[in-house]
């Protein structure tokens, strides 16, 4: 009698088995094969539909690099980057104010988020753009003054509308990131004599970045597309340029596809950038080997 207990069906009767020494049979993943086949079929149908549809592909290709379209693309990128910069600065300030020991700052930050998250962004764009209706002139009394219509260009109105709105959303993202940092980190920062501002800037925010960057990338992608709303206040961004052209030549779908193409390019580039940034901000966490 051997001391090996018999398993079900007597499988354990060969105790000398070593799974490293036997060839492994690769299991067939039927689910993957079926879904892949189904999706390929759908894709084929879609390609066929577009090929037979009444789309003048040469026109799409022609307008892809049309001057007006490229200018619109540049304006979209400019506005998205500028509004995001405004949004991040305001968002960080509001988040820091929100978690400050100063109750006045806390309420102010709360009010800001409430106001700008509470109204549609298109409404805010229209309000900024039409500011001249209620304030014909802007300025600091005695120092500088100008007519509002000269100052409040489509660019500035879009920047204020989108930036202020973005800041309100970003402040919540940043606040969530700050809350994710362990309370012990604040205490350790204090214990080595750092001031509140220094501990936020050097210790808390860098760690919060790891949590902040993924949703912030999401916000940025959203913002790139929201810039298209600025077309209502005559800011010549990508969609506005496409519309201008198809009003003239009636190639509606072709130009919308051109805009689609460029939005996808922008968002893809952004996703790549986000990936690199995430790698950078997870220093000390996603690096088990530990060496720089």
């Amino acid at each position: 009698m051997s001391g090996v207990p018999a398993g079900p069906a007597g499988a354990a009767l060969r105790p000398e088995i070593d799974i490293a020494r036997l060839p492994h049979v690769r299991p067939v993943h039927w689910g993957r094969i079926v879904t892949a086949a189904a999706l390929l079929l759908l894709l084929a149908l879609l390609v066929r539909a577009f090929a037979r549809g009444q789309i003048a592909w040469p026109v799409v290709a022609q307008y892809l690099t049309w001057r007006t379209i490229l200018e619109g693309l540049l304006n979209t990128v400019l506005m998205a980057v500028a509004a995001m910069a405004v949004g991040v600065v305001l968002g960080v300030l509001a988040a820091v104010a929100r978690s400050s020991p100063n109750p006045v700052l806390r309420s102010a930050a709360q009010f800001y988020a409430w106001l700008f998250r509470g109204t549609p962004v298109i409404l805010q764009l229209l309000l900024w753009f039409n500011l001249a209706l209620i304030f014909p002139t802007l300025g600091i009394p005695g120092l500088w003054e100008a007519r509002t219509v000269d100052v409040m260009t489509p660019f500035l109105a879009a920047l204020l509308g989108l930036g202020l709105n973005q800041g309100a959303y970003t402040s919540e993202v940043v606040r969530a990131g700050m809350l994710s940092v362990d309370a012990g980190q604040y205490e350790a920062a204090k214990s080595i004599g750092l001031t509140y501002g220094q501990s936020l800037w050097r210790i808390v925010l860098p760690q919060a970045m790891r949590v902040i960057v993924p949703p912030l990338g999401n916000e940025f992608i959203g913002l790139i597309k929201t810039t298209s709303l600025a077309s209502v206040i005559r800011y010549s961004e990508l969609l506005h340029s496409a519309e201008d052209i198809y009003y003239a030549n009636n190639r509606v779908m072709e130009l919308l596809l051109v805009a689609t193409f460029w939005y996808l390019v922008l968002v893809s580039a952004l996703s790549l950038g986000q990936m690199l940034l995430e790698r950078r901000v997870s220093r000390g966490v996603a690096r088990p080997a530990g060496r720089r």
């Binding site: 760690q207 000390g284 720089r292």
Partner: peptide, 15 residues
């Protein structure tokens, strides 16, 4: 004063 904490509280993003 210098403080040493039970849970170390090193800054994880710094060497």
């Amino acid at each position: 004063t210098g403080m040493v904490f039970q849970r170390f509280n090193l800054f994880p993003h710094m060497t």
